[in-house]
Design a protein around this nucleic acid. Structure first.
Lengths: 178, 178
DNA sequence: TGGAATTTGTTAAAATATGTTATAATTTTA
DNA sequence: TAAAATTATAACATATTTTAACAAATTCCA
């Protein structure tokens, strides 16, 4: 059997079964354990699978860095994440605007900050965003804040879900005080 | 046998079997391994197939099958994706409810269907969801449909963004007709 | 037909893949 | 915690595949 086909087979069965042992693979593919080990190493290097002792599991490629919120320690949801760039260029991520603001309380010197539009997931400059403070949705931390690139979108969300519509300055005052 | 015919035959069998060894080709085509090697090199140079040690495979070898929408071919956004499970258990993904409904038009026999709440990204049963048809947000395909687990959430979105609020049956009628 | 160009086959060697064994690392267990 | 069991790695031997070089066969064209 061609190695590439064997690899395909491995990927297939691992995806299907969420994981499999080296032993099972040797009997399934009729090759030695060493060959399986080598295969798995190659596939892991490509980021396709994750090797664990005894076998493999499906590799979650976006979990490779395992970035966590610098404030609360949670994972970073794609829709609400915030990225703060400190004065010396270092980047600190936060899971949502709430935690981003929490970080800001300590790290005053900010060269830039980004977040993500709740509706479209486009990246927006923190300073240019519009925010819904304490709407009737809690997708991440509380007090909840949703970010929007467009004021109209923020207003439309407000119609349904309430909350206070703020710009960046107002948001900062809300969290940090004057 | 003319070389061109042999090439056609190779392409045919490789496409059919997803890949084949040089050995198999030699016995199939009654030529020496060297000739097969030369053939394969030519075919690879034309970009028709991919040579790997031991034989050939179609396309790019053991690349993860990037999941794409079964209807429009786009990538699958986490927030809007749909998964349809056919009668025999096979899963077909779609990028959004729009495309999911499009698929449904052909594959009538459905054992289950899942999608994702637009606000919370929780997985919901297609049949139990509430849908906003043609709201003033276009996050994926048009006509746009947003899915919600909770009717109240759907109503609140409707306040701001308009659109028609539908349950699953009504949604189906909307796309497929009676 | 003769001879050049092309294709194919043969052989040896280089490159690569696989299997085997011993050893190291890790987990399980008593 | 130490011993036993399991799993991973390294190093080497073996097997397989690919390539290069050349010889033989075939095709093409004047």
């Amino acid at each position: 059997m061609i190695r590439e086909l064997r690899h395909q087979k491995i990927i297939e069965v691992v995806t299907q079964k969420q994981g499999i042992t080296v032993q099972e693979l040797t009997s399934l593919l009729k090759v030695s354990a060493m060959t399986i080990h080598r295969d798995l190493r190659l596939l892991e290097e490509k980021g396709i699978l994750q090797r664990v002792r005894g076998g493999v599991v499906i590799g979650r490629p976006d979990e490779t860095k395992e970035e966590i919120c610098g404030y609360c320690g949670k994972a970073l949801p794609a829709r609400t994440r915030v990225m703060l760039f400190g004065g010396s260029g270092q980047a600190v991520p936060a899971c949502c605007v709430h935690c981003g603001m929490g970080l800001l309380r300590h790290e005053r010197e900010l060269s830039a900050g980004l977040t993500v539009d709740f509706l479209y997931e486009t990246v927006i400059d923190l300073e240019r965003g519009y925010y819904l403070y304490e709407p009737q949705i809690k997708v991440c931390c509380v007090p909840s804040v949703l970010a929007f690139a467009d004021r109209g979108d923020a207003e439309r969300m407000q119609m349904g879900f309430g909350g206070k519509l703020l710009n960046y300055e107002e948001l900062k005052n809300c969290f940090i005080g004057k």
